[in-house]
Simulated scan of single mutants.
Amino acid sequence: MPVLAGAEPFSHTGSVEAGVLLCHGFTGTPQSMRPWGEHLAGHGYTVRCPRLPGHGTTWQECNRTTWPDWYGCVRTELLQLRETCENVFVFGQSMGGTLALRLAEDFGEQVAGLVLVNPSVMTLRKDAKLLPVLSRVLPSVPGIASDIKKPGVTELAYARTPVRAAASLAQLWRLVRADLAKVTQPLLLFHSVVDHVVEPVNARIVLEGVRGEDVTEVVLQDSFHVATLDNDAPTIFERSVEFVAERVGSR
């Protein structure tokens, strides 16, 4: 299956002291994480950003994948980073944040810290309860891409949301919410005041559910959902570099 131009995975081999795994969002691609990755690479860190299965091609292919496929992808990348880097951090946006939380739940201290941007663990949409039924009869619905406040910026993502894949994401949400107390790693969580994709309650659920003592919340005033491509991106990039530097030094 041909990959959309710009949706390719990317990596940078830098310091063995710290590696960062970047996880992109549902129906999105590594394109939304590339500026963040380049910023991290510019500070000497090793960076990996895989393209999740079913993403960056067609929404129809995405409908043939499930959350274990996406999780298996980032899990493999994490294990490979662990072989070469002394400290491995996981950064995620939207569903990428969901996957990052699951990695933290499963791997404990092998994950040195988390940076999340508008992570999703649930939705208030009433039709979400119908996903198991809708997924059998409705292939797709209108897409959720490019929720960006900054003029002229576009996210490379599907114009349609694959319903069967969305139903699988909802299953992952339930698992992650149930195990949030297992997340004890340092956490830096960014969330936008205005987000047309992931409701603000998601950030509250995460912040109240994790059990780490080193938890920082940053509210983004000038960005919508895809904040890594939006007006507050410099803040995210700079604060995340500081986050890694401080935790690597303390370890």
Results as ranks from 00 to 15, higher is better:
residue 177 R to H: 05
residue 144 I to A: 10
residue 213 E to W: 04
residue 162 P to H: 08
residue 55 H to S: 12
residue 24 H to M: 05
residue 76 T to P: 00
residue 147 D to A: 12
residue 61 E to A: 15
residue 228 T to R: 02
residue 237 F to D: 07
residue 222 D to S: 12
residue 35 P to W: 06
residue 37 G to D: 02
residue 89 F to R: 00
residue 230 D to G: 02
residue 53 P to R: 09
residue 83 E to Q: 13
residue 102 R to Y: 03
residue 22 L to Y: 03
residue 11 S to D: 11
residue 224 F to R: 14
residue 140 S to F: 09
residue 243 F to V: 03
residue 64 R to L: 10
residue 212 G to K: 05
residue 17 E to P: 00
residue 112 A to G: 04
residue 98 T to P: 04
residue 61 E to F: 03
residue 12 H to F: 12
residue 81 L to I: 06
residue 40 L to F: 15
residue 56 G to V: 06
residue 66 T to P: 06
residue 65 T to D: 03
residue 221 Q to H: 13
residue 81 L to G: 10
residue 179 D to I: 03
residue 235 T to R: 15
residue 138 L to F: 04
residue 123 T to D: 08
residue 156 L to K: 08
residue 145 A to Y: 05
residue 194 V to E: 13
residue 148 I to Q: 12
residue 2 P to F: 05
residue 58 T to P: 08
residue 154 T to N: 07
residue 22 L to I: 07
residue 151 P to Q: 11
residue 7 A to C: 03
residue 246 E to R: 14
residue 57 T to L: 01
residue 59 W to M: 11
residue 89 F to M: 04
residue 25 G to S: 13
residue 153 V to M: 14
residue 26 F to T: 11
residue 215 V to R: 03
residue 182 K to I: 09
residue 36 W to C: 10
residue 12 H to N: 02
residue 60 Q to E: 15
residue 81 L to F: 09
residue 87 N to Y: 05
residue 98 T to E: 15
residue 208 E to Q: 06
residue 36 W to D: 05
residue 251 R to I: 03
residue 183 V to F: 06
residue 212 G to L: 02
residue 17 E to K: 06
residue 189 L to I: 13
residue 209 G to T: 05
residue 82 R to Y: 00
residue 232 D to P: 08
residue 54 G to S: 14
residue 199 E to L: 07
residue 153 V to P: 01
residue 71 Y to Q: 13
residue 248 V to P: 11
residue 141 V to L: 09
residue 85 C to V: 02
residue 114 L to I: 07
residue 199 E to M: 04
residue 158 Y to H: 14
residue 150 K to C: 13
residue 39 H to F: 10
residue 238 E to S: 09
residue 144 I to M: 06
residue 214 D to K: 09
residue 121 V to N: 10
residue 149 K to H: 14
residue 41 A to P: 02
residue 63 N to Y: 11
residue 13 T to Q: 15
residue 37 G to H: 11
residue 172 L to M: 14
residue 156 L to P: 15
residue 152 G to V: 04
residue 57 T to I: 07
residue 202 N to L: 10
residue 196 H to W: 09
residue 100 A to F: 15
residue 176 V to A: 14
residue 199 E to R: 11
residue 46 T to I: 06
residue 190 F to V: 06
residue 225 H to E: 13
residue 109 E to Q: 07
residue 118 N to F: 03
residue 185 Q to A: 13
residue 45 Y to P: 01
residue 111 V to K: 10
residue 215 V to T: 15
residue 116 L to T: 01
residue 162 P to D: 11
residue 236 I to P: 00
